[in-house]
Amino acid sequence: MKTLVIFTHPNHQSLSYAFLQEVIRGCKDNANIEEIKVVDLYEEVQPGTRLNESKRRRDMHIDPSLAKYRDQVKWADKIVFVYPIWWGRPPAMLLGYIDQMFASGFAYKEKGGLLPEGLLKGKSVVCVSTMKGPTYYPLFWLNNAHKVLMRKALFQFVGIKKVKFFEFGSMESPKGRQGEKLQKVYRYFKTVGR
């Protein structure tokens, strides 16, 4: 299994970075994972979509500046996203990557009906996210907006049906059990299959 990890946090001293390290460590200790690639969005990718007369959204699937990242997504069997939840959603940097990468002609194609055909079928996704607020805050206060956005508005739209979430709340609290949650992520990636 080939695994692509998309890391989105500007601080390499952050808890999100510690989760990234446990994802990598678990993948390296898993015989089912033959190769892992990591993309640090704050280090590598332009933050937003810039469109004009010569660079149109409908042509993003052939944008040469994104070819490397399209190849990574095609290559991967499993895509792992590691990010904090800010304002009830992923950081703008991750949403900018999604805007650019999951474009028509690459991630899906229109077929004239209500829904398009997803072109990323057969892949699986894991989202590892942290937040300051309580774990159940997004579920009860925001109607699960984060998971609905990621699972339905994005991944199912492009054909990815297998999506798992690790959504850890109270991560700035001394009682947040950060070490226990880091170990949970490590154990998952050490044993996960396709």
Rank of each mutant, 00 (worst) to 15 (best):
1 M>R: 08
1 M>W: 01
2 K>Y: 12
6 I>P: 12
7 F>E: 03
8 T>G: 14
9 H>D: 12
12 H>A: 06
13 Q>S: 09
14 S>T: 05
15 L>G: 01
15 L>H: 01
16 S>C: 11
16 S>R: 00
22 E>Q: 12
22 E>Y: 05
22 E>D: 00
24 I>T: 02
25 R>V: 03
26 G>Q: 05
31 A>W: 04
32 N>D: 14
34 E>M: 05
34 E>C: 00
35 E>C: 01
39 V>C: 13
40 D>R: 11
40 D>L: 11
41 L>E: 12
42 Y>G: 07
42 Y>E: 06
42 Y>F: 15
43 E>G: 02
44 E>R: 03
46 Q>Y: 09
48 G>W: 08
50 R>Y: 14
50 R>C: 10
50 R>A: 10
54 S>W: 14
55 K>C: 02
56 R>N: 02
60 M>H: 09
60 M>Q: 12
61 H>D: 00
63 D>A: 10
64 P>D: 01
66 L>N: 03
66 L>E: 02
68 K>P: 02
69 Y>D: 07
72 Q>T: 00
72 Q>I: 01
72 Q>H: 09
75 W>C: 08
77 D>L: 00
80 V>G: 13
80 V>F: 05
81 F>S: 04
82 V>L: 04
84 P>K: 14
84 P>D: 08
89 R>I: 11
89 R>G: 09
90 P>R: 03
90 P>S: 12
91 P>I: 12
97 Y>H: 10
98 I>H: 11
101 M>S: 08
101 M>N: 07
102 F>V: 02
103 A>Q: 06
103 A>W: 06
105 G>N: 10
105 G>L: 10
109 K>S: 07
110 E>W: 15
111 K>M: 08
113 G>V: 12
115 L>K: 15
116 P>K: 13
118 G>D: 03
118 G>W: 11
118 G>P: 01
127 C>M: 10
130 T>K: 03
133 G>L: 13
134 P>I: 03
135 T>F: 07
135 T>K: 07
137 Y>L: 12
138 P>D: 07
140 F>E: 01
140 F>T: 06
141 W>R: 09
141 W>Q: 09
146 H>N: 13
149 L>T: 06
152 K>E: 00
153 A>G: 06
156 Q>M: 11
157 F>M: 05
158 V>W: 04
159 G>E: 01
159 G>I: 09
159 G>T: 08
165 F>Q: 09
165 F>A: 12
167 E>M: 07
171 M>P: 00
173 S>K: 02
173 S>D: 13
174 P>V: 09
174 P>S: 03
178 Q>E: 13
179 G>Y: 01
180 E>Y: 08
182 L>V: 01
183 Q>P: 04
184 K>A: 14
185 V>G: 08
189 F>V: 14
190 K>I: 00
191 T>Q: 11
191 T>N: 13
192 V>Y: 07
192 V>G: 00
